[in-house]
Design a binder for these strands. Structure first.
Length: 506
RNA sequence: GGCUCCAUCAUCUAAUGGUUAGGAUUCAAGGUUUUCAUCCUUGCCAUAGGGGUUCGAAUCCCCUUGGAGUCACCA
């Protein structure tokens, strides 16, 4: 009953001229058939339920979404679950969750092919009645045998049409499949905005393909065409891998008298081996990027530039994408999935995020600093040096926790000569100075020690860095001291001095 | 193998017959920084090959080579 919800009130008018109502068995519900293409752009994303949203899927979904939004149209979601799998709801949820995370919104309710069996059955019935399709009683064994013979003769494996005009008595014990009558000669032209007009020779690619299996269930190329037509999809943006199926779908459009949508076949995303990106290529689950600490705006920005461009522009806000995206600027060649640029974009978006937002994102990575009185100073320091939120979380932890281990090489390098003396002097100076709050307060004390002892900044920098961070690299020392406070600073200094004495004693 | 598509720096791409072939990322060097990172500056790196057409070709045509997709009672 879902499908009725879909097509009521959507403004589709009857289109009787090209659909002949015939046969006693069915009455076509003409209210479902879209008529003149409405001027509104309607795009769709039609994944099969694999349990998660694939990174390549997200890109085509993004393109479809952007194009619909740019045209004030609709972007709808359809789950292609004609076959197996009972956890379609869960799969749909995974997709919607991922959409939600990146901020893509689909319109209308979600369509499930598994719930539309009646519709497909009616159209199969219709084609049979109109003699545009027929039952084929060939067994799987016979089919295999035929194919083997054809292959042996170096012919293209194809159904030979033996039941096309069959009028005799069907063989016993065979549940027939339904095949559609395809043209036997001539050409089919696919008009694609990206590939141009591609002409297929019917003899090279077609045979009477199956539209209903022996158990009555419809097959992919049949249902896509029906669903796209009934859902009013007038612009199909999908992966390149569907391109060679398109002629078959065109046959279905033709047989049913549906308007053909505009096609945009987007080139694939390849992995490092130059092959189609698949599950085996590591992080292809969109939600994995959330866990790794990527921001959705970075991921979208990265994906929108994969196969599409707008001159030299690299940075796109969501708003800019929605106003600038145009499938006319989609590249013709496949692109390789390389996340170097994603890291750069992510760092860029982290640097430009406000701290309140970062506080929230860090919570998911186990860092609770909302109550910290120096959180602004801390975040300002740390967001300049993290490529991901998880890196940021790790860095904050390093700052906030007293070092447990000390880099040995660093210790040797930092604690030559007067280091302990310098640290003691510095600690004493800190103790006698009042009102230490800001990084600049601590910096002033360091400057004073350097000046009074007549040494370079490095002489205090290195041992102090070992004291505070346990290693010789990291964030600004004055900032660290400001964030952890005087007490913790003194504690860390004493700890590293003890540590050094132990080492020297050994 | 048949059919179809594709081919500019390592990677993402710009240049729709006239540019020293541009930008970004990566990488390298320098500057900034007490260190690291950020940031700034500079540098390295490409029209797959061969033929045409044209005054002029990355761009149009042909061939070669390479790559990809697809050929199911999967989607």
């Amino acid at each position: 009953m879902l499908y009725y919800l879909f097509f009521t009130n959507t403004g589709f008018n009857a289109r009787i001229s090209s659909i002949k109502l015939m046969g006693p068995l069915k009455i076509l519900d003409i209210s479902e058939v879209p008529s003149q293409r409405s001027s509104m752009v309607v795009t769709r994303f039609a994944p099969s339920p694999t349990g998660y949203l694939h990174i390549g899927g997200l890109r085509t979904a993004l393109f479809s979404y952007l194009w619909a939004r740019r045209n004030n149209g609709k972007f709808v979601l359809r789950i292609e679950d004609t076959d197996q799998s009972r956890n379609n709801e869960a799969a749909a949820k995974a997709i919607v969750d991922a959409f939600e995370w990146v901020g893509l919104e689909h319109d209308d309710i979600i369509t499930y092919q598994s719930q539309r069996g009646e519709i497909y059955a009616r159209y199969i019935r219709q084609l049979l009645d109109e003699d545009k399709a027929y039952y084929c009683y060939m067994s799987k064994e016979e089919l295999t045998a035929l194919r083997e013979e054809q292959t042996a003769n170096k012919e293209r494996p194809r159904y030979d049409g033996r039941y096309r005009d069959f009028t005799g008595t069907p063989p016993e014990g065979i549940e027939p499949v339904v095949r559609i009558k395809t043209p036997t000669e001539g050409t089919i032209t696919v008009n694609d905005s990206i590939k141009g007009e591609v002409v297929f020779n019917v003899d090279d690619i077609l045979d009477d393909f199956i539209i209903a299996r022996s158990d009555g269930s419809p097959t992919y190329n049949f249902v896509v065409a029906i669903d796209d037509a009934l859902m009013g999809i007038n612009e199909v943006i999908r992966g390149d891998d569907h391109f060679s199926n398109t002629p078959k779908q065109l046959v279905v459009y033709e047989a049913l008298g549906f308007d053909v949508p505009k096609f945009h076949h987007v080139p694939m995303i390849h992995n490092h081996d130059g092959k189609k990106l698949s599950k085996r290529d590591g992080a292809t689950d969109v939600m994995a990027y959330k866990e790794m600490g990527y921001l959705p705006e970075a991921l979208l920005n990265f994906l929108v530039r994969l196969g599409w461009s707008n001159g030299d522009q690299e940075i796109f806000s969501a708003e800019e994408m929605r106003t600038l995206f145009d499938p006319a600027n989609i590249n013709k060649s496949a692109s390789i999935y390389n996340t170097d640029k994603l890291d750069w974009l992510n760092a860029h978006y982290i640097k430009n995020s406000d701290n309140a937002k970062l506080v929230g994102l860090l919570e998911a990575h186990g860092i609770l600093i909302d109550g910290h009185d120096k959180k602004e100073i801390l975040l300002d320091e740390v967001k300049e040096r993290a490529k991901t939120i998880s890196e940021m979380a790790a860095l904050i932890k390093e700052i906030l926790e007293t070092p447990g281990i000390y880099d040995e090489k660093g210790m040797k390098k930092a604690f030559k000569g007067e280091a302990v003396n310098v640290l003691n002097t510095f600690a004493a100076k800190l103790n006698e100075t009042k009102a230490l709050h800001l990084p600049s307060d601590y910096h002033d004390v360091m400057a004073k020690v350097v000046e009074e002892m007549g040494i370079g900044f490095g002489k205090i920098g290195m041992p102090l860095r070992m004291a505070l961070m346990g290693k010789l690299s990291g964030p600004g020392l004055d900032t660290v001291m400001s964030v952890i406070g005087l007490e913790e600073t003194l504690l860390r200094i004493n700890k590293v001095i003890e540590r050094d004495l132990q080492n020297s004693a050994e």
